Simulated assay, not measured.
Amino acid sequence: MDHNPDVAGHAALAICESLLLALNDRRILPEQEILGILQDAAAAHENASETSGNPVLHQEVANLIHHIIDSGNSVRRI
């Protein structure tokens, strides 16, 4: 089954967001740890952008994650 990579990326993002929200709602992970997960993911892509064959893609992913964090993503309760 062939899928557009954008569709797969959107699906993965939606699934991960739902999982993080559920973990927070059930008080399994506090908000600060969830934000730490997002920050770690951004850092991993920033580091990969320095050594990867596609640095622009990794930097764009890191930028998107930072935007989610900075824009008061739905995980935040503030």
Rank of each mutant, 00 (worst) to 15 (best):
S52Q: 04
H66L: 00
I78Y: 08
L20H: 05
L38T: 02
L38R: 04
V75E: 13
V61Y: 04
D70K: 07
I65N: 00
I37M: 08
E17I: 02
I68P: 00
A14C: 11
I78H: 12
E33T: 03
V75Q: 10
D2M: 11
S74Y: 02
H3K: 05
C16I: 14
D6T: 09
E33K: 15
N54G: 09
N4H: 15
D40G: 04
A41E: 08
I15R: 01
D40E: 09
L23S: 03
N24G: 06
V56F: 15
H67P: 10
S71L: 00
E46F: 00
E60F: 12
R76Q: 10
I65V: 04
H66S: 01
N47K: 13
L57K: 04
A48W: 05
A48I: 09
N4A: 14
L64A: 03
Q32T: 13
Q39W: 15
N4E: 05
E60Y: 10
G36S: 03
I28T: 08
I28W: 10
I69C: 04
R77T: 02
G72Q: 13
R27A: 09
V7Q: 13
V75C: 12
V61A: 08
L20Q: 03
D6P: 13
L20D: 05
T51I: 07
V56K: 12
M1Y: 08
L38C: 06
H58G: 02
R27P: 00
A44C: 15
L21I: 08
L38M: 03
A8H: 14
P30H: 07
H45V: 05
P5H: 02
A44L: 01
I78C: 10
A12W: 15
A11T: 11
I28A: 09
G9D: 05
L64E: 09
N73F: 14
S74T: 14
H66V: 11
E33S: 09
A48V: 05
A11G: 15
N54P: 03
G72T: 06
D25M: 12
N24C: 10
L13E: 09
C16F: 08
E46A: 00
R26G: 12
P30Y: 15
I28K: 05
V56G: 11
Q39P: 03
A22H: 11
G36K: 00
A8S: 14
I34T: 04
G72H: 04
E31T: 06
D6N: 14
N73M: 06
E60G: 07
P30R: 15
G36P: 03
V7M: 14
Q32C: 12
G9P: 11
L13S: 04
C16N: 13
D6Q: 07
Q59L: 09
P55A: 14
E33W: 14
I28E: 14
N47Q: 12
I37R: 00
A14W: 12
Q32L: 04
A8M: 14
G53A: 05
S18A: 15
S18D: 13
S74M: 04
N63H: 08
A12C: 10
A22Q: 11
V7D: 10
I78N: 10
I15C: 13
A11C: 11
V56A: 11
R76V: 01
D2G: 10
V75I: 08
L23E: 10
H66C: 01
V7P: 13
H3V: 07
M1S: 04
L21N: 06
R77Y: 04
I37D: 12
N73D: 04
